[in-house]
Amino acid sequence: MLRPSFVPPRPVRVLRDYTRLRVDLTRERTRYWQRLEKILEDSLIKVSSVASSLDLISTRDMLEALIRGERDPHTLAGLARGRMRTKHAELIEALTGQFDDHHGELVRIMLDQIDALTRQIDQLTTRIDELIAAIPAAAIPDHECDDTGDPATQALPAVQRLAEIPGIGQSGAQAILAEVGLDMTRFPTPEHLVSWAKLCPRTIQSGNKNTSGKAGKGNPYLKGVLDNAAAGASRTDTFLGERYRRLVKRRGKLKALVAVARSILVVVWHLLSDPTARFHDLGSDYYNSRVDKEKRTRNYIRQLQALGFTVTLTAA
């Protein structure tokens, strides 16, 4: 009498194990970068205040020089490349500290751990690409190939079609496929998928009274990908970005991000339901193009009249 739980086929479950491990290793690598920055701050080295990230070729050369025993800030700042050369004075000040031999030993251990994790993540990424290529539903069916040469109508694999959504990217598309699968017949409508992912408010029923509550926990890996995608899409000049900017004014940042994540998941459902579908951005002016100008004009006039003004309109 109960509906069965969602259990994807074995190839998707295997793919899920690889994508989840990649997420875990990526988070662990981020922790090591944070520990490395803490060690540098303990030695009064504040290169992270000048460089955008410690994961740069210039900063890596500086760290390797510090490990070898170089302490002259002018020599260390001379290792900068590209646009960091224009920050020579700031680098000299940031690299002037009390970096000792034990700091160098600890930094060496941290960098070795980061390099090892990077190699493992690259190995998992290669394996994930192979597993997705081996799933028939993720490839382009023969009867859907388009030889017209038009990029807008050309059929693409599932990962590439999902990667066209703002904020998703290649790795995000792979993670979504691993979590929700490719068979959308398990979810009759987009609302079913959104409800399963716990990206909609819960309905709390007490007698004949229904109220909405907080969304449940859901799949943490799927929610993590969608949250990152929503945060990335919120900074774009797209429909999703405009949706976030409209909602954040009256609902707050967290609820606006959840709403954008829900919209992204609805788009994912439609793209996976129709293998020939391609993502089409509605544009940042979508809401303005659907506004009833006469109704908005009447509302503004009514508000001004309530404040005691006499309104006279002149066409621009």
Rank of each mutant, 00 (worst) to 15 (best):
S5Y: 07
P9C: 13
R13H: 04
L15S: 04
R20W: 04
R31K: 12
W33T: 04
W33N: 11
D42E: 14
S49T: 14
S52T: 14
L56S: 10
I57S: 14
R60I: 02
R68A: 10
E70C: 07
D72C: 03
H74K: 11
G78P: 02
R81M: 07
R83N: 15
R85M: 10
K87P: 13
A94D: 07
T96S: 05
T96H: 04
F99A: 12
D101M: 11
H103K: 05
L106H: 13
R108V: 00
A116L: 15
D122P: 01
Q123V: 00
Q123G: 13
L124K: 10
L124A: 12
T126W: 12
R127I: 09
R127A: 12
I128Y: 00
P136G: 14
A138D: 03
I140G: 01
D142L: 15
P157L: 00
A163V: 06
E164L: 03
S171T: 11
A175D: 04
R186Y: 14
P188V: 10
L193I: 10
L193E: 12
S195F: 14
R202F: 07
R202M: 10
T203G: 01
T203D: 10
I204S: 09
Q205G: 00
G207W: 10
K209C: 01
A215T: 09
G218V: 06
L222C: 08
V225P: 01
V225E: 01
A231T: 11
E242G: 13
R245N: 04
R246H: 02
R246P: 01
G252P: 13
K253Q: 06
L257M: 03
A259P: 06
R262L: 07
I264T: 00
V266Y: 05
V266A: 09
V268W: 01
H270G: 02
P275C: 03
R278G: 04
R278L: 12
Y287P: 00
R298Q: 08
N299L: 08
Y300S: 10
Y300Q: 08
